[in-house]
Design a protein around this nucleic acid. Structure first.
Lengths: 208, 208
DNA sequence: CTAAGCATGTAAGGTGTTACATGATTCT
DNA sequence: AGAATCATGTAACACCTTACATGCTTAG
C-alpha cells in the first residue's frame, strides 16, 4: 500500500487536485498515513501514465495549470483489487519510545520535555480528529467512522498513559540516580562476584 | 533516528553480535521499531568504519567469523547526543486502517477477515510484550518499563476497539448495503437538486 | 530427517523525505 | 505589510526491504 494506491482511494470519493489529495492525508488519514507533496505529485503523475486516472488541466492566468484528477474504470478496478489482496500490515517507528527506552541516559529535564512534547502531540492529533468529524457534511460512513473512533481510542490511550505514567517515570529515574545501580546490569543487589566468562548474559533461552 | 543509532543504543547494554542485536528489535523494540538483517548488518559495518564501535572476530571452524561489537567512548557520546537532540517524532503506516477506511468497497467477508487478522496480530504483540517481561532477569529499568507498559496500553486499546466495534462495523456495512446511498455523496436524504457547479464539494472552509 | 535456531552478509530495487523553485490571492 | 492558503512540480538523497547466498548445530 503505497502513496500511489492511497491517492487512487482518495479519488474514489470524487475528482480532486493534488493539493486537495494532500488535504485528505492531513485530515481523514492524519492518524494512519502521512504523505507529502513530494510523494503525492509524482504518484498522481504515474497513475495518469498508467491510465488509472485522467487529468484535466484547468487554466489559471499567469500560473501553471491546475490539474484535476479523476479515477478511471481501470483505476477503480486496480484499487478494489488492492483492497481485496493487501495484507493489513502496519509499520511503526516511534522515536518517542526509543528515547524513553534509553531514558537512563538522558537528563531528567530532557525526559520531562519529551513527555510534554508527546502529550501535546497526542492532544493535537485528537483535536484534528474531532475537527475533522465536525467539518463533515452529513453522516460519516461506517468505514471512516471505525477508523476515526479507532484513532480516538488509541491516541486517547497513549495520552492517558503519558499523563498517568510520565510523572512516575520521572520519579523512578530520580530514584535510580540516587542509588546508581551498575549501568550495564541493573539486576541484583549483591556485589559483582566476578562471574564466569564474558558475563552480561542473562538472556537464557526463553522459549518455554 | 535510523537503525544505525538504534544499534548503538543496543550496544550501550553491552557487547553483542549482529544476530543478538536483531533479537532486541524482535523483543524489547518489537512494538516501536522493526528492523531486518538487511539494515542491521550494514549499520554495524558503518558504525565500525566510523569508530563508534569496535569489532572482534571470533573464529568458528568452517563458518565465517562471528563478530562481536562493542561500543566505544565516541559511540557513547554520539548516542547520548542523539538522545539529547532528536525530536520525538513518529511514523505510522497502518494498511489496516486504510483498508477499513474503504470498507464500503470490500466484501463483508473480507472485512471480517481483516478484522480477525488484526485482532490476532494485536494479541500476538501483547503476548510478545508479556513474554519479554517474564524473560527479564532482575527488575526492568524505569525507561524500558514505561515503553513496555505504553505498548500494553496502546495495543490493548487497539484490540479492545477492534473487538468491540468490529461487529458493529460489519452490521453498519450490511445496513448501508441494503439501502445503498449514492456512493459519491452519502449525505442528505433529499434527491439531488442538480446543485450549482461541479458539486462534490461540502468541504467548506472549516477553520472556525 | 526436518525444522528451527545460530550466524553472516550483498545487491538491486523501491519508496519516501527534504530542499529547492515559483507565484497569485486572501485574510489579519 | 506579512502570513497563510492555494497550487505545482523536480532532483538528490537517505533509507529500508527483499531476495539471494551459505552452512553448522540442536531439538523434536
Amino acid at each position: 500500500m503505497d502513496v500511489r494506491t492511497l491517492c487512487l482511494g482518495v479519488l474514489t470519493h470524487g475528482e480532486a487536485t493534488g493539493y486537495e489529495v494532500k488535504q485528505y492525508f492531513e485530515n481523514a488519514f492524519a492518524h494512519f498515513h502521512a504523505a507529502g507533496f513530494g510523494s503525492i505529485y509524482p504518484a498522481l503523475a504515474t497513475l495518469a501514465d498508467e491510465g488509472l486516472v485522467t487529468v484535466t488541466g484547468v487554466e489559471r492566468d499567469g500560473r501553471p495549470d491546475k490539474k484535476v484528477y479523476r479515477i478511471t474504470a481501470a483505476g477503480e478496478a486496480a484499487f478494489t483489487d488492492a483492497l481485496a489482496t493487501a495484507r493489513p500490515r502496519q509499520k511503526v517507528r516511534s522515536e518517542f519510545l526509543v528515547l524513553l527506552f534509553f531514558a537512563r541516559m538522558m537528563t531528567l529535564d530532557r525526559v520531562e520535555d519529551v513527555l510534554k512534547m508527546k502529550a501535546a502531540f497526542y492532544r493535537q492529533m485528537l483535536d484534528t480528529l474531532n475537527r475533522h468529524e465536525e467539518a463533515a457534511c452529513g453522516p460519516i460512513g461506517a468505514g471512516p467512522r471505525f477508523t476515526l473512533d479507532f484513532g480516538r481510542a488509541v491516541y486517547g490511550a497513549a495520552l492517558a498513559h503519558v499523563e498517568r505514567e510520565g510523572p512516575a517515570l520521572l520519579e523512578a529515574l530520580a530514584r535510580e540516580r540516587e542509588q546508581p545501580p551498575d549501568p550495564r546490569a541493573p539486576a541484583e543487589t549483591d556485589p559483582p562476584t566476578d562471574d564466569g566468562p564474558t558475563g552480561a548474559d542473562c538472556h537464557s533461552r526463553d522459549r518455554s
